[in-house]
Design a protein around this nucleic acid. Structure first.
Lengths: 171, 171
DNA sequence: ACGGTTGCTTACGTTGACGTACGCGTTAAC
DNA sequence: GTTAACGCGTACGTCAACGTAAGCAACCGT
């Protein structure tokens, strides 16, 4: 019995309401995303109720990240999710020993996946750079405001309890 | 004659179409944003045609950044733009010597501006951290794909012309 | 067994952020 | 002075991403 065949605790299989609550999206959104082909419940119950596994939960948060952090439309998210990642290729390789794919085909799949991956990575770096520039600009404004504050404090009589932005994830 | 009173070149005063072209937004969008109170032309011509200055152009790009980079709604953008920044306070101070505001009032304005500024800064840092985490995760996938690639190349006969992601803004 | 909760499908409504079209006045190059 | 391009206000259209509602079936705690 490998780790992949471990028994599922009942805590790991979630109905849609539970998944919704834990991921912070509504059930309507989950069904809508399913309609668009973004997610699919790992199983169903007799009456047709959707059942989700932790892997599905990870997918949901990933979709939200792509949407909110990167500003992707759901169509763009679909493309990103559709390109197989290392996990998927790993699964294919181990379970079926690459099935009936020719060596050239395997290579093509890998190259394709790697290129899509690097493309997303490049976009992430670009976005990071732009936001970082924006941040620096904003930090400069903060400093200028602090200067004005000092200037005022010099002629003021009130106690100065103003603190600068000393926190934050550095760099 | 100070720098602030420098003459305006005709290149500096733009009709709406020109501004649209230079900022990459449509004229419709500019009028829509004006309708929402986000921007306002610095002047008008006899026939009512809008005229913009470079400062307006900066404001336009700023709005786009807040919208696309940070995912702000236009209502949120409005709040950010409405809070006076250091430039605005500086202008108030120098031109009217703080007008008729009491010292307490000046202090309140400054504190308010600084807090709004720091709040935005904190959100920027948070967003940066989250995207950065996302990026690292993605980079890990890239490495895993590279491993799979090496593994394949060991048994393959084709030349390996695959290069890793060596570029990007480091850190 | 049963009532409250949860879930299902289907369908229509909503909201933000514009796009598009129209009729008309204004500007600018020739 | 004409005319093609540009700009104006007004109004309706559109599209993604859900929200909301209705009627009914399934689940579960007691």
């Amino acid at each position: 019995m490998t780790a992949a065949e471990a028994v599922l605790s009942t805590d790991d299989v979630l109905p849609i309401g539970e998944l919704a609550q834990r991921t912070g999206v509504t059930t309507r959104t989950l069904r809508y995303w399913e309609e668009l082909g973004l997610i699919r419940p790992s199983g169903h119950r007799g009456g047709g109720e959707r059942l989700y596994l932790p892997a599905d939960m990870a997918r949901v948060t990933r979709i939200r990240d792509l949407q909110e952090l990167l500003g992707f439309s759901l169509a763009e998210v679909r493309v990103v999710l559709d390109t197989p990642d290392a996990d998927a290729l790993d699964r294919v390789r181990s379970e079926y020993r690459w099935g009936d794919a020719s060596p050239a085909e395997r290579r093509r799949l890998l190259v394709e996946a790697a290129e899509a991956n690097d493309q997303l990575l490049a976009r992430l770096d670009d976005t990071l750079a732009r936001i970082s520039a924006f941040r620096d600009e904003q930090a400069a404004k903060s400093r200028r405001l602090a200067e004005l504050f000092d200037e005022l404090d010099g002629t003021d009589d009130a106690p100065n309890d103003r603190r600068g932005p000393e926190e934050g994830t550095k760099r």
